[in-house]
Amino acid sequence: MGNCIAKYSPLVWSIAKRHVQDHSAAEDIVQETFTDLWKSAKRYDPAIASESTFIGLLSRRRAIDFARKESRRPQLEPMPEAESLPYAAIESSPPLRCDSSDVRAALKELPEETQKIFSLHFDEGMTHPEIVEKTGLPLGTVKTRLRRGLIDLRNRLSRLDNAQPFSPASP
């Protein structure tokens, strides 16, 4: 468990800080995430997702849920409750190849513009309006490319396991 903290606490802290500005609240989210983890470790199935993805999902939900409750992002539609993580859904979820090399490889196959928007959103933590300002693209286009890019990436990752042809999201 100590090794787990050492390995993943920087990631969880990064995710918490990405979504929550308040330092103290972000610390609480990190602690709550690890509490969730200790309680749910027995439900973790490495065949479905990598450890970092599973832990990232726990912290992402915690952080976004907090942001919603604090109304710091009132323009955004709330995520499900962090504590209502549907473990049955995780256990019934199809396997997803999400090791670092898989994600990077799949990302490179996406259209260049989608890669750029992904980088702004997931890497630099920009909000949609900030991406609009940075790229000059209409808000609708940014939303559509993020959504379809996410679907496309999911399809590519999930099909890595059975080597079926890719099925990109509809244009």
Binding site: L57, I90, P94, S100, D123
Partner: peptide, 24 residues
């Protein structure tokens, strides 16, 4: 299922994993 959310989580984890978060 959770595959889309896991994908978003994998993306975020991938982009953040090499950053130095200055953990208190």
């Amino acid at each position: 299922d959770l595959s889309l959310e896991l994908t978003a989580s994998a993306l975020e984890a991938e982009f953040l994993k090499d950053k130095d978060p200055d953990l208190p």
